[in-house]
């Protein structure tokens, strides 16, 4: 074995080997994840009181722009991060589901506040007991309303998970059908 082998061998295995092909895909994913992590386009689905803290989070003091996630896209089709901010009532549920369905893969969902996560203390006829009942959620933020720091923490958590590929949106099952 000469110099030639030392150079060639790793190259050959990476391209041709079965298991190593998966390795190549992972690396692409990582690259994509790294890229996506810093260019989240958000769709704010703000309904209630938490929206005030959401505004505060985007406003000068807390400055969401530091994380590259401040650009709101006012069409779900162009965004990949859905912030569900506030109480989702039963009447609102089909709308939320539809908006989630309109977003393109890959997509992530953050439930902002107790109401979005579990229904909060509105445990009654009018509210959905947690949006994970209707769409998949990646990160839940507790708090009524959460402080902006908490929300930024959640965003960083999501970014980390996007980068290492552990956050994955799943196709939604509504009424037993794939939407």
């Amino acid at each position: 074995m000469g110099v030639e082998d030392r150079i060639r061998l790793p190259v050959r295995t990476e391209v041709l080997g079965g298991a190593e092909a998966a390795f190549a895909t992972t690396r692409l994913d990582q690259l994509l994840g790294w890229a996506r992590k810093y260019s989240l386009f958000m769709y704010p689905f703000a309904t209630a009181c938490c929206g005030m803290e959401f505004m505060a989070m985007s406003a000068p003091k807390y400055d969401l722009a530091r994380f590259g996630a401040e650009a709101p896209r006012f069409s779900p089709r162009q965004s990949d991060l859905l912030w569900v901010v506030g109480t989702i009532s039963q009447r609102q549920a089909p709308v939320l589901q539809r908006i989630y369905g309109q977003m393109c893969e890959p997509k992530w969902v953050i439930a902002f506040g107790t109401c979005a996560s579990t229904g909060g203390f509105y445990d009654n006829y009018a509210t959905v007991p947690g949006i994970d009942r209707i769409i998949p959620v990646d990160v839940f933020i507790p708090g009524c309303p959460p402080r902006p720091e908490q929300a930024l923490d959640a965003l960083m958590l999501l970014m980390k998970r996007i980068a290492d590929g552990s956050a994955r949106g799943e196709p939604i099952l509504a009424n037993g059908q794939v939407v």
Partner: peptide
């Protein structure tokens, strides 16, 4: 009519099917 006293507060009437969680 939910504000009548005999309507149970927690009786929801969802418009969409719930996921299994």
């Amino acid at each position: 009519h939910p504000l009548r006293k005999d309507y149970a507060a927690e009786k929801t009437q969802p418009l969409v099917g719930y996921r299994e969680v």
